[in-house]
Design a protein around this nucleic acid. Structure first.
Length: 779
RNA sequence: GCGACAGUGGCGGAAUUGGUAGACGCGCUGGUUUUAGAUGCCAGUGGUAACCCCGUGAGGGUUCGAGUCCCUCCUGUCGCACCA
């Protein structure tokens, strides 16, 4: 009983045993059903954090469990190795990003190994290796041939802090997603991927992903934002023609072309060219335009923001009646959506209604309620006004239902050359060029004579020089003559290489495919991909619900259409794990910045009247009282992280893993708790002691069910019930907590149950085997 | 504002999907081992002095039976955010 459970020794022995046996290396075994269990690969930032540990523990439990059920299970691991932090680290300490990244990978690989995951390390890959990124380049060239990749000069989002172009998706509320800096607009030629071409499929295929959480599918559907409607052009009236000094038409997109006869005004965004033209000769309007543009950035109270507008004094002509319609600038019209202009139909659109009331504009009824909810549109607004009905007061188009009116009106518009049916997406094409060094070079050569020439396949990969050190003054590739100088593949004359690199989302869009054939030098994929893919289970953070998952789905569909893979959806089942939270403690000195204290350093005691007091012993200030600010995601900035490495050193990986799985269901956030850790630690120790004691008493006799006492029979039944329960829970990934609870209960009864009889030992043996079997996946 | 999800002891959370509410763990209380502490072990722990009583955010409904289903409301979390 004096023996102490030495987690490090126990775990090291197990890990060595696995290594020797190459226990987790798998091949393509057609005899067994395959199971591909994938966790999102980490960015090699330097050290693992608890979020990683949780992510990979959940994946590992699923992998080990399915493996025990007889599947041929692949669980690979790799590194999302390109990206900005490496450049930032390079700038602060002068180390080339390649070196920094590879050191981090080596360190984190060791950390991961000490956690004992059932990973096939033979298949490890890093996206910064030419053997990987050459296929980014290769597929990019195929996309270029198909017209999916194209070059376009466009207004891009420029992050002034990171000095890089951001995708629309990387701009959050007008700010860079990483830096939070206000984004500026710049014109830069760059490469785009035509993801909108796949918009329909990306949307409709969501319905065939029952293994995805509903909310992720909703988020993706909203992001794609498909709407079916009609483009309508309102020709300029003479005054507008004069202001714009050109003939033309104001284009709008509408989903309600059936209400086109109800248009009583036009509303345009403050940034719209007509607004800018009108503002030149109208200072009041110019001031309003300014206000709107400022207001749209300060979005905090957008929800309750009043619908404000101002007339431009300019007009357009109704495409059917020829009537003059006045153009207003309105703060509720967004330049970034559709054409930056809407047709104002106050009778049948709530926002237009509100706007018309406020500005005393005419409200006309052009749709009659099919359900008899109303005859005429009157104040106040009722939702029925916005519903589909039968057209009225619409000239030759009166008396039609929505579908018929839409068809007739769009056909008539098309005849006049003033519009047509159109499907509009919120989703934009994916700009993949980045003005950064530490990324996959875009395989293009710029020749004075031949223009932009794709690098021939035979010259791939375009190698990224690994010895450069960014200094903050832009992309070092632009200063590297060795990289820049090349020959034009077409004419052979000296030419310059493209220095832009690809968005790192490209790297992560297909890494899961490459795991299947990581050592294949001759091609991007090989038949092994057909065996393993698609992935059966993907585990990762909800923060990737839109970008990474959407890009991956798109990329795989392109690969499918190129005949490279046979599937169109990469991830059959998706599990989005919750965050790891911990307490936040702060101290606000009389002067200076608020300080954050790590919860591990905080002592909590109760005051005489029962209120909790949190104290920290500091060197400079002595013992101070700190404030408990609640719970937050473990982060550096709030100093509430728990370091996995020191944790494992102290308690062992099994405790870390058991606690992670036990304390909270995988999809929910997990609150760190030292007490919970104690419980998990105690449990692991207790299990170890029970197994060791049992083993030390020698082999158990064969189990004779008929000879059991009622107590023994009960224990045996409890063991089998626990097994069934755990199998069910882990299989459905619903709640690992209950699976573990069943085993804890079992273990409790085993420990108490010790009558020393031979059959008692046999039952105990069986029960322990079951406990170890179920906990095997977890610990 | 719209949408999704949730609300159960002091805490994390169970409840076999409509059938003994509070599994399991933490915490707490008492006992015990120990020179002492930590650990370990034993017992107790929703409320109430107690019960065959009352208890799953509030109110109503369906049902032999509701934490679970339906309606209304409240609160919280997340997502979207004037989507034309």
């Amino acid at each position: 009983m004096e023996e102490i459970y030495d987690a490090a020794a126990v775990e090291r022995a197990a890990q060595e045993y696995w290594d020797e046996r190459r226990a987790f290396e798998v091949g393509e075994d057609t005899e067994r059903p395959k199971y591909y269990c994938l966790s999102m690969f980490p960015y090699p930032s330097g050290r693992l954090h608890m979020g990683h540990v949780r992510n990979y523990t959940i994946g590992d439990v699923i992998a080990r469990f399915t493996r025990m059920q007889g599947y041929n299970v692949l669980q690979p691991m790799g590194w999302d190795a390109f990206g900005l932090p490496a450049e930032n680290a390079a700038m602060s300490n002068g180390v080339p990003p390649a070196k920094w990244t590879r050191q981090n990978i080596a360190y984190m690989r060791n950390q991961m190994k000490s956690l004992g995951f059932a990973i096939d390390w033979k298949r490890e890959l890093a996206t910064c290796d030419p053997t990987y990124y050459r296929w980014n380049q290769w597929l990019f060239l195929r996309m270029l041939e198909k017209g999916i990749a194209y070059r376009k000069t466009g207004v891009v989002n420029w992050d002034p802090v990171d000095k890089t172009v951001l995708a629309n998706e990387q701009v959050i509320e007008g700010r860079g997603w990483r830096t939070g800096a206000l984004v500026e607009k710049r014109e830069i030629p760059m490469y785009y991927l035509n993801i909108t071409r796949y918009g329909d499929e990306l949307l409709s295929a969501l319905d065939n992903l029952p293994g995805w959480p509903e909310r992720v599918r909703v988020m993706q559907a909203n992001w794609i934002g498909r709407s079916e409607g009609c483009e309508v052009a309102f020709p300029y009236a003479p005054d507008t023609r004069a202001a714009m000094s050109a003939d033309g038409a104001l284009k709008v997109f509408t989903t309600r072309a059936d209400t086109v006869f109800g248009v009583t005004f036009m509303a345009i965004a403050a940034e719209h060219p007509i607004a800018l033209a009108a503002a030149k000769s109208n200072s009041a309007l110019a001031a309003f335009v300014d206000e709107c543009r400022r207001g749209s950035v300060m979005e905090a109270d957008v929800a309750t923001q009043e619908k404000k507008g101002m007339r431009t004094g300019l007009h357009v002509l109704h495409p059917f009646t020829g009537e003059q319609i006045e153009i207003w600038v309105a703060n509720y019209v967004l330049m970034g959506y559709g054409e930056g202009a809407v047709m104002g139909v106050p009778g049948h659109d709530e926002r237009d209604f509100e706007f018309a009331l406020k500005n005393s504009l005419r409200i006309t009824t052009v749709v009659r309620s099919a359900s008899g909810a109303y005859d005429e549109v009157l104040e106040p607004w009722i939702p029925a006004y916005g519903e589909y009905g039968i057209t009225v007061n619409s000239g030759e188009f009166s008396g039609l239902d929505f579908k018929a009116a839409l068809d007739a009106i769009s056909a008539a518009l098309e005849k006049k050359g003033l519009g047509c049916k159109r499907i509009h997406y919120r989703l934009r094409d994916w700009g993949v060029s980045r003005q950064r060094y530490w990324g996959c070079p875009i395989p293009i050569i710029h020749c004075e004579a031949c223009g932009d020439v794709p690098v021939p396949d035979s010259q791939l990969p375009v190698m990224l020089p690994e010895d450069l050190v960014p200094d903050g003054s832009g992309n070092p590739l632009n200063k590297s003559e060795a990289f820049l100088a090349c020959k034009c593949p077409k004419c052979g004359k000296p030419a310059r290489r493209e220095t832009d690199t690809m968005d790192t989302f490209v790297d992560s869009s297909w890494y899961f495919v490459r795991y299947a054939c990581q050592d294949q030098a001759a091609s991007m994929v090989d038949p092994r991909v057909d065996y393993w893919l698609p992935t059966d289970q993907y585990v990762g953070g909800i923060e990737h619900a839109i970008l990474h998952l959407l890009y991956s789905r798109f990329w795989v569909k392109v690969m499918r259409d190129l005949g490279l893979v046979k599937f169109g959806e990469p991830f059959t089942n998706l599990l989005t794990q919750g965050m790891v939270l911990n307490d936040i403690y702060t101290y606000q000195p009389a002067e200076g910045r608020k300080r954050y204290f790590n919860p591990a350093d905080v002592d909590t005691r109760r005051d005489a009247d029962g209120t909790e007091i949190h104290e920290v012993k500091t060197k400079e200030l002595g013992t101070i009282q700190v404030v408990h600010e609640g719970l937050g995601k473990m982060s550096k900035s709030e100093n509430n992280g728990v370091d996995p490495e020191s944790f494992v050193a102290r308690f062992g990986a099994d405790t870390a893993r058991l606690f992670m799985m036990y304390a909270s269901p995988p999809e929910q956030s997990l609150v760190w708790s030292d007490d919970g850790v104690q419980g998990a630690s105690r449990f692991i120790r207790r299990l170890w002691v029970a197994v060791r004691d049992h083993v030390s008493k020698g082999p158990s006799p064969a189990l004779e069910v008929g000879a059991l006492t009622p107590g023994q029979r009960d224990l045996r039944r409890a063991a089998h019930r626990a097994l069934a329960k755990a199998t069910d829970d882990i299989g459905r990934r619903r709640n690992f907590n209950t699976a573990i609870a069943a085993i804890m209960e079992l273990l409790n009864s085993i420990v108490r149950f010790d009558d020393g009889s031979p059959q008692g030992r046999a039952v105990r043996h069986e029960a322990l085997e079951i406990a170890v079997m179920v906990l095997g996946p977890i610990t």
